[in-house]
């Protein structure tokens, strides 16, 4: 990896501004949700069903989220992670700052275009298999800030989203329901099919 030596802060600003403008130009259409392998008739190989079941059970039973908490939905995530609505019972209390050690991104909060390249980079740096839960109205579609000059209208403009949890902010029970939906989605994954 070549490392560019950037010396002046105006150069840094210009690079950042260029990257953001390019990202805006690239993200005019939402990325389609990864659900193709859910609908098709899965011809399950009898021999592999138990392997599938074991793998999917292992993958869904300890989804480790990565930090992606730009705004107020983060408080509801913290509440979900605290003792009353425990996410530790799902094996998810390990919220990793490093994307290499995480396999779930719960996007809790409004995303601005200025922060968007960083979030996309963190998503890209996560190791597969990885999933995304869009939490809250701002993550689904930009929420009440949709027509703003600086807000990304939904995380699915920059990253593919698996589960959408509506609410402003969603109650912890709603977020846990969304996590359960993601577990069901992962349980349907088959390694013999063309999916992830």
């Amino acid at each position: 990896m070549e490392v560019e030596e950037v010396y002046s802060s105006s150069e840094l600003d210009r690079k950042e501004g260029k990257a953001i403008n390019e990202l805006i130009a690239r993200s005019q259409e939402p990325i389609p949700d990864p659900d193709q392998w859910l609908d098709e008739e899965l011809k399950r190989n009898i021999l592999l069903t138990s392997v599938d079941a074991m793998l999917d059970w292992a993958r869904r039973s300890s989804l480790w989220p990565v930090f992606c908490f730009p705004a107020c939905c983060a408080f509801e995530f913290m509440t979900t992670a605290a003792s009353r609505f425990d996410i530790s019972r799902f094996g998810m209390e390990i919220v990793r700052a490093s994307p290499r050690q995480a396999d779930l991104m719960i996007t809790a909060g409004t995303l601005t275009w200025k922060m968007a390249p960083q979030v996309k980079r963190i998503y890209d740096q996560m190791a597969e298999p990885k999933w995304v839960i869009a939490m809250g109205a701002c993550a689904i579609s930009g929420g009440i800030f949709r027509s703003s000059y600086s807000v990304v209208p939904g995380y699915n403009r920059i990253i593919p989203v698996d589960v959408y949890v509506p609410g402003c902010p969603p109650r912890p029970e709603a977020l846990l329901y969304g996590i359960r939906m993601l577990h069901q989605k992962i349980a349907k994954m088959s390694i013999a099919a063309k999916g992830k």
Binding site: M1, V3, E4, V6, L12, K15, Q118, R121, I122, Q125
Partner: peptide
């Protein structure tokens, strides 16, 4: 991008 060094989402300087 995936193999690049992690610097909290930014390009490494």
């Amino acid at each position: 991008v995936k193999s690049s060094t992690f610097e909290c989402g930014m390009e490494t300087i």
